[in-house]
């Protein structure tokens, strides 16, 4: 008994310590970035000033006044929101069909959808740029960014929704059929209310992925439809590193999504473990 008691006391102290150390290691870059954003560019490159510096909001004023932060932020909000809505508009019926009217090919289709995520994005960079710029003339438009963000997240959205919809007993949908609801009614009155947690966490995750996406948003935009990713990219000046400025921009870019994630974490965790705890 004594040994058990001692070892449990030891582990009671040790595991939280390990957890804190690991968490701090992971968090350190963010922590460093937030601190640096309140330093001048000159202070920022001196490591001994990690804690001892005179905080300044200069970088933030600079960012909003000279770099048009709000326009980039607005673009991020617009493209991420509409891409998420579009992904749900396409994804909900698709997942519904596969969950409740599966065919022999449903599994193949699901795997095929996921396989599109296995293609390296760089492989289609040239055709995408050429087609959108020279042939379709939609380069650097909200429309293009929304469509691209929607498409790259659609496989994940459909997979997640499919998993949630699968949890709903088929008889409930059939009871709806007996009660005379049409397909739209089944989705609107039965499916979405029942899978609400799942739909919400799918939407949230899709929004986060859209917001954070950098590969395409940086390459398919210049000014008009440029998002916060592009703003960060643009501040990576070739003539020298303006760490203070860059950190302020980065903090302001990831800030909203961290706040959103924080407020929705209960919903997110609930949604992601929906199947496990039910």
């Amino acid at each position: 008994m004594a040994i058990v008691a001692r070892s449990s006391k030891f582990s009671r102290i040790m595991w939280p310590t390990v957890a804190w150390i690991v968490a701090l290691i992971f968090f350190f870059p963010i922590f460093w970035m937030v601190f640096t954003s309140f330093k001048t560019d000159a202070d920022a490159v001196k490591p001994e000033f990690l804690f001892s510096f005179k905080p300044t909001l200069e970088n933030y004023f600079n960012m909003t006044e000279n770099y048009d932060y709000w326009r980039f932020a607005a673009n991020s909000v617009i493209t991420s929101s509409f891409a998420t809505i579009l992904a749900l508009v396409v994804g909900v019926p698709a997942a519904y069909a596969m969950a409740f009217n599966p065919s022999r090919h449903t599994k193949d289709i699901l795997v095929w959808m996921l396989s599109t995520k296995m293609l390296p994005a760089a492989a289609v960079l040239y055709p995408m740029t050429f087609l959108t710029k020279n042939m379709l003339g939609i380069y650097d438009t909200h429309f293009l960014v929304i469509v691209v963000l929607c498409l790259i997240n659609l496989p994940i959205v459909i997979w997640m929704l499919f998993t949630y919809f699968k949890e709903i007993p088929k008889e409930i949908i059939e009871a709806g059929k007996m009660d005379g609801v049409d397909t739209w009614g089944e989705i609107k009155d039965i499916l979405i209310p029942l899978a609400w947690g799942g739909v919400a966490s799918t939407a949230l995750l899709c929004f986060i992925f859209c917001w954070n996406e950098a590969y395409w948003t940086v390459r398919l935009t210049t000014t008009e439809a440029a998002t916060l990713s592009k703003l960060i990219e643009g501040n990576r000046a070739p003539e020298g590193l303006f760490f203070g400025r860059l950190s302020a921009v980065s903090t302001a870019a990831v800030g909203p999504i961290i706040v959103l994630g924080w407020f929705c974490q209960k919903q997110l965790v609930q949604g992601l473990t929906f199947g496990a705890v039910k």
């Binding site: 008889e171 409930i172 059939e174 009871a175 059929k177 007996m178 009660d179 005379g180 039965i190 029942l194």
Partner: peptide
């Protein structure tokens, strides 16, 4: 004819009530 237009009503094994 659609299920709801056949003049039939069904009671399911699992009840299949709308939980919400």
């Amino acid at each position: 004819v659609a299920p709801s237009k056949r003049g039939v009503a069904m009671v399911f094994q699992t009840y299949a009530l709308y939980p919400h």
